[in-house]
Design a binder for these strands. Structure first.
Lengths: 217, 217
DNA sequence: CAAACATAGTTAACAGTGTTAATATTTGCA
DNA sequence: TGCAAATATTAACACTGTTAACTATGTTTG
C-alpha cells in the first residue's frame, strides 16, 4: 500500500505549499492582499483547488496563526534556562515586545485579528475543542514565572494568575498601542524630549521593569 | 447671497446623512459590511455620489472615528467633577473598559483598526496636521489625573507621563485581550472558578485598582 | 480486459467590493 | 432664455470569496 501513502504525502505536501505561499503573501502584504487567487497563482494551481485543502480563507488564516504561536513559543522556550525568575520575566517581556515589532503581521494575526477566532468558533468548534492550546501554554509559562517570582519575594500578597493577567495586559497594551500608532500620534505629543515611538516604547518598558523591581518585600 | 448659504447647508446636510447611514451600518454590521453601495442605498443616492462628499471609504471611517472620540470624551468629561483624584482615576478606568464593551465597534475603530490611521497618514497628512486631537486631549486628562494623584501621595517618584502611559497600556490591554477572545479562550482555562470572561475582566480591574491603591507613600 | 467509480483539478459563474471616467441632469446667474 | 457650474448618475474596470458543474486521471471491481 505504498502508493496510498505516497498520495497522502503528496496531499499533505500541497496543503503545506498552499500555507507557505499564503505565509509569504501575508507577511509581505497583509491580510487583504492575501487573496485565494494570488495564493493559487503562486503555487500555479487553480483558485478552486485550494478549497480541496482548506475549508475557506479563514481556515488558512487560522493555520497561519498556529504557525505564529509556534514561532513565539520557540522564542519563549529559549528563556526556560534563565534561572533568576525576575530576569526571566524581564526577558519574556522584552521578547514579547520584540516579537510584536519584528513579526508585526504575525502578532496582529495572533492577538488582534478576528478571523482566526471566527473560524475557531464557527467551524472548528464542532467537537474539536483544540482551541488556542499554544496560547494557553504560553500563559502557563507566564503564570509559573510569576509564581517563581513570588517565591523569590516579589509581588507578595497578589493572586498569581490575576497578577499574570495584569502583566500580560500591560505588555500587550504597550505593543498594541505602539503598533496602532497611538504612541507616535498621542503620547509623542506629551513626551517631546523622546524622539520616536520606538524610543518611547523602550523607555516605557524599562520604566515598567524598574517599577516591578520595587515590588519586593 | 442667502442661496449660496442654503446650498452650503444642504451640502453639509448630505455629508452628515452619509455619515449617519455609515454609522448605523458600521455599528450594527461592522467594517466589512459597511459598503459604499449599502450606504448609498440607505440614503437613496447613487454610490458614486458619496465620492462627491468623501474622498474614499477610509475618509468616512476616519470621520466615524472622530465621532467615537467625541463620544468617549463626553463620558470622560462627566468625570471632571470627581474631586478625589484617585477616585477619578478609578472612574476613568471603569469608563474606558465599559466603553470598550458597550461600544465595541467604536472602540475597535478608535484604537485598533488601521484604516483611520492610513487615511490620516496618506491623505490628511498633506499639511493638515490636525491628527487625533481628541486622543491627545483624552491622554492629557489622564496625565493630569495622575499628576493630581501624585500630589495626593500616590505613585511617588515615577515620571508622570510614563506612569500614565503604563496605566493606559494596562487598561487598554485588558479591554483588547477581552474583546479579542483571549480572556475567554486562554485565561479562563486557568481561572476556572470564575465563570465567564466578563467576570474575569471585572475581577482583574478590581485587583488592579486594589494594587494601585497600595502605591501610596 | 472493460466498465464503474472515486479523486484531483479545472472552467465558468454568482454576487459582491472600491473606485473612476464619461455622461446626464439640475441649478444659479448674466 | 442661454450658459456655465455644480451635482448626480450610468457603465465599467479590476478585483474579491465561494460554489456548481464538468473533465480528466487513475484505481478498483465485475
Amino acid at each position: 500500500m505504498g502508493i496510498k501513502e505516497r498520495k497522502e504525502r503528496h496531499k499533505e505536501d500541497l496543503r503545506q505549499r498552499i500555507l507557505d505561499a499564503a505565509k509569504v503573501l501575508f507577511l509581505k502584504e497583509g491580510y487583504d492582499a492575501t487573496s485565494i487567487r494570488k495564493i493559487a497563482s503562486a503555487i500555479e494551481f487553480s483558485p478552486t483547488t485550494i478549497y480541496l485543502y482548506y475549508k475557506d480563507k479563514n481556515d488558512i488564516i487560522y493555520a497561519l496563526q498556529k504557525e505564529g504561536f509556534k514561532l513565539l513559543r520557540t522564542k519563549f522556550s529559549a528563556l526556560s534556562n534563565v534561572e533568576n525568575p525576575f530576569e526571566r520575566l524581564k526577558a519574556m517581556g522584552r521578547t514579547y515586545l520584540q516579537f510584536s515589532i519584528e513579526n508585526r503581521e504575525f502578532y496582529e494575526l495572533m492577538f488582534v485579528m478576528k478571523e482566526p477566532l471566527e473560524f475557531l468558533e464557527n467551524v472548528c468548534g464542532e467537537g474539536e475543542e483544540e482551541q488556542w492550546d499554544e496560547g494557553v501554554e504560553a500563559f502557563s509559562f507566564l503564570v509559573h514565572t510569576i509564581a517563581d517570582c513570588q517565591q523569590a519575594g516579589y509581588f507578595g500578597g497578589h493572586d498569581t494568575r490575576m497578577f499574570s493577567l495584569l502583566i500580560w495586559s500591560t505588555v500587550h497594551g504597550l505593543s498594541t498601542l505602539n503598533m496602532h500608532g497611538h504612541i507616535t500620534h498621542v503620547v509623542e505629543k506629551h513626551l517631546v524630549e523622546l524622539q520616536d515611538g520606538g524610543q518611547i516604547l523602550e523607555a516605557a518598558f524599562n520604566n515598567y521593569i524598574k517599577f516591578l523591581e520595587q515590588l519586593k518585600s
